[in-house]
Protein backbone atom coordinates (compact mmCIF):
# COMPACT_ATOMS: atom_id res chain seq x y z
CA UNK A 1 0.00 0.00 0.00
CA UNK A 2 2.66 2.43 1.05
CA UNK A 3 4.71 1.62 -2.02
CA UNK A 4 1.76 2.26 -4.35
CA UNK A 5 1.19 5.64 -2.68
CA UNK A 6 4.91 6.34 -2.94
CA UNK A 7 4.97 5.51 -6.65
CA UNK A 8 1.85 7.58 -7.30
CA UNK A 9 3.41 10.65 -5.79
CA UNK A 10 6.64 10.12 -7.71
CA UNK A 11 4.78 9.71 -11.00
CA UNK A 12 2.66 12.81 -10.39
CA UNK A 13 5.54 15.09 -9.40
CA UNK A 14 6.90 16.05 -12.85
CA UNK A 15 3.36 16.85 -13.99
CA UNK A 16 2.79 19.14 -11.02
CA UNK A 17 6.00 21.06 -11.63
CA UNK A 18 5.43 21.44 -15.37
CA UNK A 19 1.71 22.19 -15.11
CA UNK A 20 2.16 24.82 -12.39
CA UNK A 21 4.78 26.51 -14.55
CA UNK A 22 2.41 26.52 -17.51
CA UNK A 23 -0.38 27.77 -15.27
CA UNK A 24 1.63 30.88 -14.48
CA UNK A 25 2.44 31.45 -18.15
CA UNK A 26 -1.19 30.95 -19.15
CA UNK A 27 -2.47 33.21 -16.39
CA UNK A 28 -0.49 35.98 -18.07
CA UNK A 29 -2.18 35.14 -21.36
CA UNK A 30 0.61 33.14 -23.00
CA UNK A 31 -0.27 29.69 -24.31
CA UNK A 32 2.93 27.72 -24.80
CA UNK A 33 2.20 24.33 -26.35
CA UNK A 34 5.94 23.61 -26.38
CA UNK A 35 5.97 21.96 -22.93
CA UNK A 36 6.76 18.53 -24.38
CA UNK A 37 9.80 19.89 -26.23
CA UNK A 38 10.98 21.96 -23.27
CA UNK A 39 10.71 18.91 -20.99
CA UNK A 40 12.68 16.78 -23.46
CA UNK A 41 15.42 19.41 -23.63
CA UNK A 42 15.42 19.73 -19.86
CA UNK A 43 15.69 15.94 -19.51
CA UNK A 44 18.59 15.46 -21.90
CA UNK A 45 20.54 18.48 -20.64
CA UNK A 46 20.11 17.46 -17.02
CA UNK A 47 21.17 13.91 -17.81
CA UNK A 48 24.30 14.95 -19.67
CA UNK A 49 25.38 17.48 -17.04
CA UNK A 50 24.75 15.04 -14.20
CA UNK A 51 26.76 12.34 -15.98
CA UNK A 52 29.74 14.60 -16.61
CA UNK A 53 29.74 16.51 -13.33
CA UNK A 54 28.48 13.79 -11.04
CA UNK A 55 26.12 16.24 -9.39
CA UNK A 56 22.38 15.73 -9.90
CA UNK A 57 21.77 19.27 -8.59
CA UNK A 58 23.94 20.83 -11.28
CA UNK A 59 21.95 18.64 -13.65
CA UNK A 60 18.59 19.99 -12.45
CA UNK A 61 19.95 23.53 -12.71
CA UNK A 62 21.11 22.87 -16.28
CA UNK A 63 17.75 21.30 -17.15
CA UNK A 64 16.00 24.34 -15.79
CA UNK A 65 18.26 26.57 -17.87
CA UNK A 66 17.61 24.54 -21.01
CA UNK A 67 13.84 24.80 -20.49
CA UNK A 68 14.09 28.53 -19.88
CA UNK A 69 16.22 29.00 -22.97
CA UNK A 70 13.64 27.15 -25.08
CA UNK A 71 10.87 29.34 -23.68
CA UNK A 72 12.97 32.43 -24.36
CA UNK A 73 13.04 31.42 -28.01
CA UNK A 74 9.28 30.96 -27.86
CA UNK A 75 8.83 34.28 -26.13
CA UNK A 76 10.91 36.08 -28.73
CA UNK A 77 8.74 34.73 -31.54
CA UNK A 78 5.34 35.28 -29.94
CA UNK A 79 5.93 38.30 -27.70
CA UNK A 80 8.45 40.35 -29.65
CA UNK A 81 7.58 39.27 -33.19
CA UNK A 82 3.86 38.74 -32.37
CA UNK A 83 3.86 35.27 -33.89
CA UNK A 84 0.96 32.88 -33.54
CA UNK A 85 1.23 31.16 -30.17
CA UNK A 86 -0.36 27.86 -31.13
CA UNK A 87 1.75 27.31 -34.23
CA UNK A 88 4.95 28.45 -32.50
CA UNK A 89 4.28 26.21 -29.51
CA UNK A 90 3.68 23.16 -31.69
CA UNK A 91 6.88 23.90 -33.60
CA UNK A 92 8.77 24.26 -30.31
CA UNK A 93 7.56 20.83 -29.19
CA UNK A 94 8.67 19.15 -32.40
CA UNK A 95 11.96 21.04 -32.35
CA UNK A 96 12.67 20.13 -28.71
CA UNK A 97 11.89 16.46 -29.18
CA UNK A 98 14.11 16.26 -32.25
CA UNK A 99 17.00 18.27 -30.83
CA UNK A 100 16.97 16.31 -27.57
CA UNK A 101 17.16 13.03 -29.51
CA UNK A 102 20.15 14.39 -31.42
CA UNK A 103 21.98 15.61 -28.31
CA UNK A 104 21.12 12.45 -26.39
CA UNK A 105 22.37 9.97 -28.97
CA UNK A 106 25.79 9.36 -27.29
CA UNK A 107 24.16 8.90 -23.86
CA UNK A 108 21.67 6.18 -24.69
CA UNK A 109 23.69 3.39 -23.05
CA UNK A 110 24.56 5.31 -19.87
CA UNK A 111 22.87 4.95 -16.51
CA UNK A 112 23.11 7.39 -13.61
CA UNK A 113 23.49 6.27 -10.02
CA UNK A 114 20.22 6.46 -8.09
CA UNK A 115 19.87 9.62 -6.05
CA UNK A 116 19.13 8.94 -2.41
CA UNK A 117 15.74 10.01 -1.18
CA UNK A 118 15.51 12.49 1.69
CA UNK A 119 13.98 11.17 4.86
CA UNK A 120 12.21 13.64 7.10
CA UNK A 121 12.69 12.55 10.68
CA UNK A 122 9.64 11.75 12.84
CA UNK A 123 7.12 12.32 10.02
CA UNK A 124 8.57 9.46 8.01
CA UNK A 125 7.81 7.10 10.91
CA UNK A 126 4.05 7.47 10.56
CA UNK A 127 2.78 4.13 9.26
CA UNK A 128 1.83 3.91 5.56
CA UNK A 129 1.73 7.68 4.95
CA UNK A 130 5.16 8.33 6.42
CA UNK A 131 7.31 6.39 3.97
CA UNK A 132 5.13 7.45 1.03
CA UNK A 133 5.12 11.17 1.74
CA UNK A 134 8.17 11.90 3.84
CA UNK A 135 10.85 9.66 2.44
CA UNK A 136 10.92 11.16 -1.03
CA UNK A 137 13.11 12.80 -3.60
CA UNK A 138 13.97 16.45 -2.95
CA UNK A 139 12.03 17.53 -6.05
CA UNK A 140 8.85 16.04 -4.57
CA UNK A 141 9.15 18.40 -1.62
CA UNK A 142 9.98 21.12 -4.13
CA UNK A 143 6.71 20.47 -5.99
CA UNK A 144 4.73 20.90 -2.77
CA UNK A 145 6.58 24.08 -1.89
CA UNK A 146 5.97 25.34 -5.41
CA UNK A 147 2.26 24.67 -5.01
CA UNK A 148 1.96 26.63 -1.77
CA UNK A 149 4.10 29.49 -3.02
CA UNK A 150 2.11 29.80 -6.23
CA UNK A 151 -1.25 29.78 -4.44
CA UNK A 152 0.02 32.54 -2.19
CA UNK A 153 1.54 34.39 -5.14
CA UNK A 154 -1.56 34.23 -7.34
CA UNK A 155 -4.23 35.01 -4.79
CA UNK A 156 -2.48 36.91 -2.03
CA UNK A 157 0.28 38.99 -3.56
CA UNK A 158 0.07 42.16 -5.59
CA UNK A 159 2.37 40.74 -8.27
CA UNK A 160 -0.01 37.81 -8.68
CA UNK A 161 -2.88 40.25 -9.02
CA UNK A 162 -0.98 42.08 -11.74
CA UNK A 163 -0.29 38.79 -13.53
CA UNK A 164 -3.96 37.80 -13.50
CA UNK A 165 -4.98 41.28 -14.60
CA UNK A 166 -2.65 41.12 -17.59
CA UNK A 167 -4.03 37.74 -18.60
CA UNK A 168 -7.53 39.06 -18.44
CA UNK A 169 -7.13 42.33 -20.27
CA UNK A 170 -3.68 43.31 -21.51
CA UNK A 171 -4.95 46.57 -22.99
CA UNK A 172 -6.47 47.67 -19.67
CA UNK A 173 -3.31 46.65 -17.86
CA UNK A 174 -1.24 48.66 -20.33
CA UNK A 175 -3.47 51.70 -19.94
CA UNK A 176 -2.94 51.72 -16.18
CA UNK A 177 0.78 51.48 -16.72
CA UNK A 178 1.97 47.86 -16.57
CA UNK A 179 4.50 46.55 -19.04
CA UNK A 180 2.52 43.67 -20.51
CA UNK A 181 5.30 42.32 -22.68
CA UNK A 182 7.93 42.27 -19.92
CA UNK A 183 5.63 40.53 -17.46
CA UNK A 184 4.59 38.01 -20.11
CA UNK A 185 8.25 37.32 -20.82
CA UNK A 186 8.77 36.66 -17.12
CA UNK A 187 5.82 34.30 -16.90
CA UNK A 188 6.86 32.47 -20.07
CA UNK A 189 10.42 32.02 -18.80
CA UNK A 190 9.11 30.70 -15.49
CA UNK A 191 6.94 28.20 -17.38
CA UNK A 192 9.96 27.09 -19.42
CA UNK A 193 12.18 26.75 -16.36
CA UNK A 194 9.59 24.58 -14.59
CA UNK A 195 9.20 22.42 -17.71
CA UNK A 196 12.98 22.00 -17.70
CA UNK A 197 12.96 20.89 -14.04
CA UNK A 198 10.10 18.48 -14.81
CA UNK A 199 12.19 16.95 -17.59
CA UNK A 200 15.23 16.79 -15.32
CA UNK A 201 13.20 14.93 -12.72
CA UNK A 202 12.36 12.26 -15.30
CA UNK A 203 15.91 11.62 -16.54
CA UNK A 204 17.86 12.09 -13.30
CA UNK A 205 15.53 10.87 -10.52
CA UNK A 206 12.55 8.96 -11.91
CA UNK A 207 14.28 6.62 -14.36
CA UNK A 208 17.97 7.61 -14.18
CA UNK A 209 18.68 7.09 -17.85
CA UNK A 210 18.10 8.79 -21.18
CA UNK A 211 15.93 7.27 -23.87
CA UNK A 212 14.67 9.13 -26.91
CA UNK A 213 11.01 10.09 -26.40
CA UNK A 214 11.11 9.34 -22.69
CA UNK A 215 8.90 12.33 -21.86
CA UNK A 216 6.18 10.34 -23.67
CA UNK A 217 3.38 12.91 -23.75
CA UNK A 218 3.72 14.19 -20.19
CA UNK A 219 4.18 17.71 -21.55
CA UNK A 220 0.88 17.49 -23.34
CA UNK A 221 -0.85 16.05 -20.31
CA UNK A 222 0.53 18.94 -18.24
CA UNK A 223 -0.99 21.44 -20.67
CA UNK A 224 -4.30 19.59 -20.65
CA UNK A 225 -4.18 19.48 -16.85
CA UNK A 226 -3.98 23.26 -16.64
CA UNK A 227 -6.95 23.76 -18.92
CA UNK A 228 -9.14 21.09 -17.38
CA UNK A 229 -8.15 22.20 -13.89
CA UNK A 230 -9.68 25.54 -14.96
CA UNK A 231 -6.42 27.32 -14.11
CA UNK A 232 -6.64 26.51 -10.41
CA UNK A 233 -3.52 25.15 -8.69
CA UNK A 234 -5.30 22.73 -6.36
CA UNK A 235 -7.07 20.98 -9.20
CA UNK A 236 -3.74 20.68 -10.99
CA UNK A 237 -2.41 18.84 -7.96
CA UNK A 238 -5.41 16.48 -7.88
CA UNK A 239 -5.19 15.82 -11.61
CA UNK A 240 -1.47 15.11 -11.50
CA UNK A 241 -1.79 12.57 -8.68
CA UNK A 242 -4.76 10.97 -10.39
CA UNK A 243 -2.59 10.49 -13.45
CA UNK A 244 0.19 9.12 -11.30
CA UNK A 245 -2.18 6.77 -9.51
CA UNK A 246 -3.67 5.24 -12.62
CA UNK A 247 -0.19 4.99 -14.14
CA UNK A 248 1.06 3.03 -11.16
CA UNK A 249 -2.07 0.89 -10.98
CA UNK A 250 -1.82 -0.21 -14.60
CA UNK A 251 1.92 -0.93 -14.31
CA UNK A 252 1.15 -3.00 -11.24
CA UNK A 253 -1.60 -4.83 -13.13
CA UNK A 254 0.63 -5.51 -16.12
CA UNK A 255 3.44 -6.72 -13.92
CA UNK A 256 1.29 -8.87 -11.66
CA UNK A 257 0.92 -11.62 -14.20
CA UNK A 258 -2.85 -11.64 -13.80
CA UNK A 259 -4.38 -12.85 -17.04
CA UNK A 260 -6.59 -10.11 -18.46
CA UNK A 261 -8.30 -9.91 -21.83
CA UNK A 262 -7.25 -6.32 -22.50
CA UNK A 263 -4.39 -5.34 -24.81
CA UNK A 264 -1.45 -3.90 -22.88
CA UNK A 265 -1.48 -0.81 -25.09
CA UNK A 266 -4.90 0.00 -23.75
CA UNK A 267 -3.66 -0.27 -20.20
CA UNK A 268 -0.75 2.02 -21.01
CA UNK A 269 -3.18 4.57 -22.41
CA UNK A 270 -5.39 4.38 -19.34
CA UNK A 271 -3.69 7.10 -17.23
CA UNK A 272 -4.06 9.59 -20.06
CA UNK A 273 -7.69 8.68 -20.70
CA UNK A 274 -8.66 8.62 -17.02
CA UNK A 275 -7.05 12.00 -16.30
CA UNK A 276 -8.74 13.70 -19.21
CA UNK A 277 -12.16 12.16 -18.52
CA UNK A 278 -12.13 13.12 -14.86
CA UNK A 279 -10.90 16.63 -15.55
CA UNK A 280 -13.49 17.16 -18.26
CA UNK A 281 -16.14 16.20 -15.75
CA UNK A 282 -14.88 18.66 -13.13
CA UNK A 283 -14.44 21.47 -15.62
CA UNK A 284 -17.86 21.19 -17.26
CA UNK A 285 -19.19 24.11 -15.20
CA UNK A 286 -18.98 27.04 -17.60
CA UNK A 287 -19.11 29.62 -14.82
CA UNK A 288 -15.94 28.40 -13.15
CA UNK A 289 -14.24 28.44 -16.51
CA UNK A 290 -15.35 32.00 -17.29
CA UNK A 291 -14.20 33.27 -13.92
CA UNK A 292 -10.81 31.56 -13.94
CA UNK A 293 -9.77 31.35 -17.57
CA UNK A 294 -7.39 34.11 -18.66
CA UNK A 295 -9.51 35.92 -21.25
CA UNK A 296 -6.57 36.94 -23.43
CA UNK A 297 -5.04 33.43 -23.55
CA UNK A 298 -3.23 32.83 -26.81
CA UNK A 299 -3.90 36.30 -28.21
CA UNK A 300 -0.89 38.43 -29.13
CA UNK A 301 -0.87 41.88 -27.62
CA UNK A 302 0.75 44.84 -29.30
CA UNK A 303 0.94 47.93 -27.11
CA UNK A 304 -0.17 51.13 -28.81
CA UNK A 305 2.66 53.32 -30.03
Amino acid sequence: MSSILFATITAGTPLIIVALGQLIAEKSGVLNLGAEGMMAMGAVTAFAVTLHSGSPWLGVLAGMGAGALMSLLFGFVVLTLMGNQVATGLALSIFGIGLSAFIGKPYESDILPTVEAIRIPVLADIPIIGPAFFHQQALVYFSWALFFILVWFLYRSRSGLVLRAIGESPSSAHSIGFSVIKIRYGATLFGGAMAGIGGAFLSVFYTPLWVEGMVSGRGWIAIALVVFATWRPFRVLVGAYLFGGVMVAQLFLQGSGIQIEVPSQFLSALPYIATIVVLVIISRDRNTVRLNAPASLGKPYRPEE
Binding site: A165, S169, S171, S172, S175, A295
Partner: peptide, 11 residues
Amino acid sequence: VFQHFSLFETL
Protein backbone atom coordinates in the same frame (compact mmCIF):
# COMPACT_ATOMS: atom_id res chain seq x y z
CA VAL B 1 -11.60 57.55 -17.01
CA PHE B 2 -11.78 55.65 -20.26
CA GLN B 3 -14.81 55.40 -22.50
CA HIS B 4 -14.34 51.65 -22.64
CA PHE B 5 -13.56 50.94 -19.04
CA SER B 6 -10.16 49.58 -18.19
CA LEU B 7 -11.38 47.38 -15.38
CA PHE B 8 -10.73 43.69 -14.82
CA GLU B 9 -14.03 41.85 -14.67
CA THR B 10 -12.94 38.80 -12.69
CA LEU B 11 -11.35 40.87 -9.93
